Amino acid sequence: MSKMSKTILVNVDRCLGCWTCSLACKVAYDLPVDEHRLYVRTIGGGGVDVPAGQWPNLSMKWMPVYKTSCIDCRGCSSTDDMPYCVYNCTTEALTYGDLDDPASPAAREMTRLKNMGYHAYELSAWEGTKPGVVYLEKGL
């Protein structure tokens, strides 16, 4: 797991697949309709919002995926210098900060979730994703 000065943590178990993170980025940077710097992947049955399994045993999760085009913005003073995606996350699934600083929100959240049995990982570079985004998930 690479530690960078500022990291986005993604608590996969808190994400509801609402796309607010992606839309916040899109609006803040006035991106064209077909351009996203991050998208929300459905983890389940192989399609957008398609669950895995058979009724009544269905399961589905969502995961914000940061593309290499993400500019690692710092937001602005109105967002307390958090990236727009983190600031606007309605479920607090996203946390931002310095993992090397024990007082930062990201370091505190990483410690809290690991103490609860969560596993941390990064997505593979071959997926065309931004390095340094850390995902946390329970029950891997």
Rank of each mutant, 00 (worst) to 15 (best):
Met1Gly: 11
Ser2Lys: 13
Ser2Gln: 13
Lys3Trp: 13
Thr7Phe: 00
Thr7Ile: 05
Thr7Met: 02
Ile8Val: 15
Leu9Trp: 02
Leu9Met: 05
Asn11Gly: 05
Val12Pro: 07
Val12Trp: 02
Arg14Ser: 10
Cys15His: 03
Gly17Phe: 08
Cys18Arg: 02
Trp19His: 14
Cys21Asn: 05
Ala24Thr: 06
Cys25Val: 12
Cys25Glu: 09
Cys25Pro: 08
Cys25Gly: 10
Lys26Gln: 14
Val27Asn: 12
Ala28Arg: 12
Tyr29His: 15
Asp30Phe: 08
Leu31Ala: 10
Leu31Gln: 12
Asp34Ser: 10
Glu35Gly: 07
His36Lys: 12
Tyr39Thr: 12
Arg41Gln: 14
Ile43Phe: 09
Ile43Pro: 04
Ile43Trp: 08
Gly44Gln: 07
Gly44Lys: 06
Gly44Val: 03
Gly47Gln: 11
Val48Ile: 13
Val48Leu: 09
Val50Cys: 02
Val50Ile: 12
Pro51Val: 01
Gly53Met: 04
Gly53Val: 07
Gln54Lys: 11
Trp55Val: 13
Asn57Pro: 00
Ser59Gly: 07
Lys61Asp: 05
Lys61Cys: 01
Lys61Pro: 00
Trp62Ala: 07
Met63Glu: 15
Met63Cys: 13
Pro64Gln: 07
Ser69Phe: 04
Ser69Ile: 13
Ser69Glu: 13
Cys70Arg: 07
Cys70Met: 11
Ser78His: 11
Asp80Trp: 10
Asp80Asn: 14
Asp81Trp: 15
Asp81Gln: 14
Tyr84Cys: 11
Cys89Ala: 09
Thr90Ala: 14
Thr90Tyr: 04
Tyr96Cys: 04
Tyr96His: 14
Gly97Gln: 06
Gly97Thr: 03
Leu99Ser: 05
Asp101His: 01
Pro102Glu: 08
Pro102Ala: 10
Pro102Gln: 04
Pro105Lys: 10
Ala106Leu: 02
Ala107Ile: 00
Arg108Met: 13
Glu109Tyr: 05
Leu113Arg: 04
Leu113Trp: 00
Met116Ile: 01
Met116Ala: 12
Gly117Phe: 00
His119Met: 08
Tyr121Cys: 00
Glu122Tyr: 05
Leu123Cys: 10
Leu123Val: 08
Ala125Lys: 10
Trp126Ala: 06
Glu127Ser: 10
Thr129Leu: 05
Thr129Phe: 00
Pro131Gly: 14
Leu136Gln: 01
Glu137Leu: 09
Lys138Val: 13
